[in-house]
């Protein structure tokens, strides 16, 4: 927080626009979590721990729709569209490239809105996050959500039996992206 950077570069402004778009998006993740049946029954400490550990991954899933994989562009929540080539020249080029790659793979699973919501709930409620106090309660909720997701996917993708497995394999992939990128620096005008 005590670091200050040169504000004169254009890349700074683009990066700031991306940073600011996180605030409403993070708040929406918090509101979403509170509506997951059973989430509010967890201790507030565990609710906060799950959110702090999992929100980046949820944003990766949610932001997937902002990427146009064919055109290689990203539309920020402000509505402005940038090419991946331009973004790659900024400090966090690798982050955008990873997000685009992830979006491409997620899109091939062709999930509908309900499946996506349930998948996001599974991403968020993971008992193996650090700092969880009441493991049993989080595990029980996680099991319920995974069973619900499995049932929904099996019903909707009866002809594509590997969809659920492919979706579960996205979880370690997201974890890895979180580990690589959550320490990226964001800049804010102050």
């Amino acid at each position: 927080p005590s670091l200050y950077v040169d504000p004169s570069q254009r890349s700074q402004e683009i990066w700031e626009e991306f940073s600011l778009s996180f605030i409403p998006a993070v708040r929406e993740v918090v509101e979403f979590a509170k509506r997951i049946p059973g989430f509010r029954d967890l201790s507030e400490y565990d609710q906060v721990s799950l959110l702090k550990n999992g929100t980046f991954e949820v944003l990766m899933v949610r932001f997937a729709s902002l990427f146009d994989v064919a055109e290689r562009t990203v539309t920020f929540l402000t509505g402005k569209c940038y090419s991946l080539e331009l973004l790659r020249s900024l400090r966090a080029g690798q982050l955008f490239t990873s997000m685009c790659d992830f979006s491409e793979k997620l899109a091939t699973l062709q999930l509908d809105k309900d499946e996506m919501s349930l998948f996001i709930a599974v991403v968020l409620v993971s008992a193996d996050r650090s700092g969880i106090q009441d493991l049993k309660s989080v595990e029980a909720l996680q099991d319920t959500l995974i069973r619900a997701l499995r049932s929904l996917i099996m019903t909707n993708h009866a002809n594509e039996t590997t969809t659920f497995t492919k979706l579960l394999l996205k979880l370690p992939e997201l974890r890895s992206l979180n580990n690589i990128h959550s320490e990226e620096l964001l800049a804010f005008k102050v």
Partner: peptide
Amino acid sequence: PKTHRVMTLADHISHIITQDFARNQ
């Protein structure tokens, strides 16, 4: 003149979540 503060993505997310829970208490 404009100055910029730098935070990590993880810190930023954590900060917004803490604020949100504090606001609703």
